[in-house]
Nucleic acid binder design. Structure first.
Length: 262
DNA sequence: ATGCCTAAGCCCCTTAGA
């Protein structure tokens, strides 16, 4: 089965492009971020017409996450524990059944950007990452296939960006951000994209500005982390770059994995 | 040192993004 993550940068502005991508690439599950819509205005009818069920956790104007699936979804939770006053919609989790009827746990994650740093937005990013780390540990203890997919807003290493010097002060590649990401991964998660493509350029985001796409000046911030039970079934992974080149594209490309049937 | 683009709401400017 194919599981993708796609920061759409506005589901209303991106709807034709999103529907085209779903039809072209046929993911079984699609985790979306930055849907930038309230719960009431989520375009459920269009998603259903495209053959997908959905659960979503929206917010007016910015943030917002969703999970689409060709088969029924069982909604588990919105949000992470640990900060009651946090009203950003950045986390949703659901179960889906694979072809053998076994459950797979899926999370769609929109981790805070954290710029500018230092400052309160960066502090919020690090706190949010700690909350994710705590929840990820609990998910590992389930000993089931789990896929934590989304826009992590973390460039894990200097090999994950075309021009590290240009971004050296950016929240996406600070040592503190990288350290928490690494602490999450070393709990026992597998970074699916780097497992299939260990070296070389592997970008999932190209800025709209300064001709970044044309210069291929991108970086890798969209990640799929797999529990051991999911990693055992990993057969392929990639980035849907061609859709990034089209008119009215998101600044992110969809990033996907393929899992063997259980 | 700054803006470079884009989306959305506060809607013709501002906020947020990365």
């Amino acid at each position: 089965m194919k599981i993708a993550t796609y920061n759409v940068n506005g589901i209303k502005a991106r709807l034709p492009r999103l529907l085209e991508w779903l039809a072209d690439t046929q993911p079984d599950i699609a985790c979306l971020q930055e849907i930038k819509t309230s719960d009431e205005t989520f375009p459920e009818a269009d998603i259903l017409a495209a053959g997908y069920q959905a659960v979503w956790h929206g917010q007016k104007g910015f943030n917002g996450v969703a999970i689409l699936s060709k088969t029924p979804l069982s909604h588990i939770r919105n949000g992470l524990d640990g900060e009651d006053e946090d009203d950003h919609s950045r986390y949703i989790e659901a179960d889906v059944a694979d072809s053998a009827g076994h459950l797979i746990r899926i999370a769609s994650i929109y981790l805070p950007n954290g710029n500018p740093q230092p400052g309160p937005k960066f502090d919020y990013k690090l706190r949010w990452m700690e909350r994710l780390r705590a929840h990820a540990a609990a998910l590992l203890a389930l000993e089931m296939p789990v896929v934590l997919a989304g826009d992590y807003n973390v460039i894990p290493t200097d090999s994950d960006i075309a021009n590290p010097a240009a971004m050296k002060d950016d929240a996406l590649m600070q040592p503190e951000s990288r350290a928490v990401f690494r602490r999450i991964v070393t709990q026992g998660w597998t970074d699916a994209l780097r497992t299939i493509h260990p070296t070389g350029p592997l970008w999932t985001f190209w800025d709209y500005q300064a001709g970044a796409w044309q210069r291929d000046a991108g970086f890798r911030i969209d990640h799929l982390l797999l529990s051991p039970e999911a990693a055992d079934r990993l057969v392929d992974a990639g980035v849907d770059k061609d859709h990034r080149a089209r008119e009215k594209a998101s600044d992110h490309a969809a990033t996907w994995i393929s899992l063997r049937d259980d």
